[in-house]
Design a protein around this nucleic acid. Structure first.
Lengths: 198, 198, 198, 198
DNA sequence: AATGAATGAGCCTTCATTCAT
DNA sequence: AATGAATGAAGGCTCATTCAT
């Protein structure tokens, strides 16, 4: 209801809501299959099974689709993070849970995600994309129990994500190795001042 | 024989060498001025002061220009890193020197660089771009004097760069603050096991 | 049975009659506000406060709206002319009354009318638009009391209107000056053979 | 050289000059054949025998073509008028010569011209189109040898042209009759105060 | 009768690339 | 080697019109 920013017409009927989702799904698929070069409105509409006119009913222009994809991913990511933070993932320290959740998101379709991620990085509003970090940043406390400064929170969250993104973008083969996850956790904990063995 | 991947003809004469540089300079300027949308071969050629035909003598296609830009930046970055690593920057610890060199590179043209960086991230070959990290990764040793594992080297270098990139991409206003630099250094040292006061 | 040429369904109910008028009013406003480029069926329907489907109940296609606008203007013009001819405008010679009535019609919204007029000129059926001249042409008599030939009637009416239209289309600033009106009257009378002082 | 207003690139080579003329000729033909509805850039380019890209090399957009057509017609009209004014058309009074020149211009392709004229009226810059009248207006003198006031000059020139245009637009069958010409001349002379038999 | 979501033909325009000069 | 006019495939987008509800 309040995501109308990039949406031409708030789709209240379920049919309309479905159209938006079809289009976003189709956009993801097109991006994964053909890369950014093949990402054009006609292809997306066709893949979504809607007419080009319908596509333009819900998105003012091509870029808005890309942005909406970014937002949808971000929202999904936030949910995962929130779950991890809430300790729902039992038996795992929260930091490890968040990192693992992110890494697992790429399971199986690494190459495809790489393209989609690059396209998104190129066009999305990084400020908005980053909003999801807010809760993560503010929730961390260092070994002494002190809350992080805003800059420290920024550094930690972006550093961990930067390493994970780089692994995806560079097609690193250790993306799903345990050692990689361990090192990320180690980075986080070291920064927060927990002992190396924590 | 030594024809580079993306260069049609190895430019041996100085005039040709100059043309390539003019084109790359022009490409950077166009990207900064008009964003990726305005980045087209005709604009680049015009800005470079060469004909479109000449541009195509040196670059097989548009993408090659973007890739070459990425490579040139990378080479420049490597040089800075190498200098910092060599301790040429007197009175500064090597790690801090590298970080500072990177941060300073954005001084004054943050917004422009953001666009250029996004475009590059979207199209460049991340594997090749990352090659510059090789020396950095392998040179670091932890507090115990032990060399880092490849994955650990990867995590450290990408984490630091990830945080710096994010600051640029998100338009963070603390990009040139001392605290930001300090936190990056702290991140690096904590990960390597140096005491928090190091 | 009495289905007008450009009207799908003779609107007998007042509500329907009102819809047609709303649409025509809206069409005029859209044309004045956005020019011909912005003149599309969706915009007209929205401005009229009816659905696009309803618009198509009363007009078979877009062009019909433009034609109906032209006809409505013509009818209104005829009424003014008839009044002037009937001497209802007291104290003014009939010819001057007709000319003044036309000129006054543009008072206050010159620019808007210019666009509307151009659009109408471009699409309307000029033969039909001109029918309103019939009574004017045949009613004039020359100084000797002889009726005008059809061609002479045509020349006189179109000449006067041509000068007035040109003043609107060229944005002449003397549109409402007394001298302009005087010259038009003079033209008319001179042609009819009345002395220059008439 | 100074018509660059609507021309993207001053065509100095003869080939380029020819392209512009081809395009303008083609535009006229398309307009005459298919009306304004069929007047699209692709059709014009095809008819002109040039690629759509070439068309856009010389005209920034579709409207510019229409405007250039208007200007070309105006320039041609000016030439005819100038000739008539210069008395080159021997044995004919100057006013009659101008009128006849205009009327003859429609010979043979009345219907086609009507469409073209309407399209031009709808989009052209009427101020610019009217510039050609300058010399005509200022050259006329009344029966007493006195120059006309600006407004009187305007009224005379637009009145005569208005009647002629109306004949074209309404498809009048007397367009080329002698009586029509005679009445136009009579209108002009009566207005200027020459005796009815002049 | 009214609605308005959906359709899709088709238009304008861009720009990577070629090649005759 | 360089030039730059020409090409034309491709794609973003509009909007007149339909029809299920």
């Amino acid at each position: 209801m309040e995501e109308a920013d990039n949406i031409r017409q708030a789709p209240r009927q379920k049919r309309a809501r479905a159209s938006v989702d079809f289009i976003l799904d189709a956009a993801t698929q097109v991006l994964e299959r053909d890369g950014e070069a093949g990402f054009n409105t006609n292809a997306v509409a066709e893949r979504a099974g809607v007419s080009i006119g319908t596509l333009y009913r819900y998105f003012p222009d091509k870029l808005a689709i890309l942005k909406a994809m970014g937002m949808r991913e971000t929202v999904a990511f936030r949910k995962v993070v929130a779950q991890a933070m809430a300790g729902e993932t039992e038996g795992l320290a929260r930091d490890r849970a968040v990192i693992r959740a992110f890494l697992r998101a790429f399971q199986g379709r690494t190459r495809a995600r790489q393209i989609a991620m690059m396209a998104m990085l190129a066009h999305a509003d990084h400020r908005k994309l980053a909003e999801g970090f807010g809760p993560v940043e503010t929730s961390f406390t260092d070994a002494a129990g002190k809350a992080l400064s805003p800059i420290a929170g920024f550094v930690l969250s972006r550093a961990v994500q930067g390493a994970m993104r780089a692994a995806v973008l560079e097609g690193a083969d250790f993306l799903l190795c345990q050692e990689f996850e361990d090192e990320l956790v180690k980075l986080s904990r070291a920064y927060l001042g927990y002992g190396p063995k924590a």
